[in-house]
């Protein structure tokens, strides 16, 4: 399989405030890319814009999956085209069981032309598949009967996202800090799960502050984002450098981007207040 996710000169605004200012990125199927950068640099925004969140307005540039222009698609069409994002803080859907949610999701993603009301994957077949996936991820079978993210701990939420990724087998996955808020054991488990499910089987864009996730999933490319742009790209050694020494060198090397980043952070804080 050869698929390419191509992001060209992407500008994105939220509430008319520019966040991304010209992002270029190409990910090939089977590659692992790390996306790093200080708070407020626009990492999550890039993920949400690729996923099609309606609040993230693309003002310039485009996103391509092979020959398909994702920018013109709704979020569900992008998902059916093969885009997946594991969210940092997935929302709860009370009253909807994980198993029912995933069955409907998997049916739609596997049969992109399915019309509303048409048959779902047969229950028995789906349960069997879900059960074996959950065993592979060392998850309690009870999990499938719980309501989607309802009352989940931080670790449970992240594992539910990984399970969803496994069931949907997308062409490209964006993992937004899937290691944050987890203890050391949970990070190890999540990292190993991502490696098992994702490596070589999809293109991965891993957003992270830490290096644990990258130990299990060594990136071929590391991108550094600052002030809404990718300012530097390197290999695995760049991720290590940033983890060990922080962003001081980057900030000094790109003073304009750093100024933009500070400005966005200040705005974010003033909004939060």
């Amino acid at each position: 399989m050869s698929h390419i996710l191509r992001i060209e000169n992407l500008h994105v605004s939220v509430n008319d405030k520019p966040i991304l200012r010209g992002v270029n990125l190409v990910i090939k199927f089977g590659e692992t890319h790390a996306l790093m950068g200080p708070n407020g640099s626009g990492k999550s925004t890039l993920g949400l814009a690729i996923s099609g969140h309606p609040n993230y307005q693309i003002t310039e540039g485009s996103i391509w999956l092979d020959d398909a222009n994702l920018t013109e698609m709704e979020a569900d069409e992008r998902s059916r085209a093969g885009i997946f994002m594991a969210f940092q803080r997935p929302v709860a859907i009370p009253g909807v069981k994980m198993a029912d949610f995933l069955r409907h999701a998997a049916t739609n993603v596997r049969h992109p032309d399915r019309k509303e009301g048409q048959d779902l994957i047969p229950m028995r077949e789906f349960r069997k598949e879900l059960k074996s996936r959950m065993e592979q991820l060392k998850m309690d079978p009870e999990f499938a009967r719980r309501y989607v993210n309802d009352g989940f701990s931080g670790g449970e939420m992240k594992r539910a996202e990984i399970l969803t990724m496994a069931m949907l087998s997308p062409k490209f996955s964006i993992l937004d800090e899937t290691d944050s808020g987890l203890d050391a054991d949970a990070v190890r488990l999540a990292s190993a799960s991502i490696a098992e499910i994702g490596r070589d089987k999809m293109g991965l864009l891993i957003i992270t502050h830490h290096d644990k996730l990258l130990e299990h999933n060594p990136p071929q490319f590391t991108h550094v984002m600052l002030g809404g742009r990718i300012v530097e790209t390197g290999g695995a050694e760049l991720a290590r450098e940033l983890h060990d020494h922080g962003y001081d060198r980057i900030r000094k090397a790109y003073p304009d981007a750093d100024a933009a980043n500070q400005q966005m952070l200040a705005k974010e804080e003033s909004l939060a207040v």
């Binding site: 969140h53 997946f84 994002m85 409907h104 739609n108 509303e116």
Partner: peptide
């Protein structure tokens, strides 16, 4: 946000 979450998993808006 719930609608977007479900859409990002392949559900249409009305589903």
């Amino acid at each position: 946000e719930l609608i977007f979450y479900a859409q990002s998993r392949g559900f249409t808006r009305s589903e």
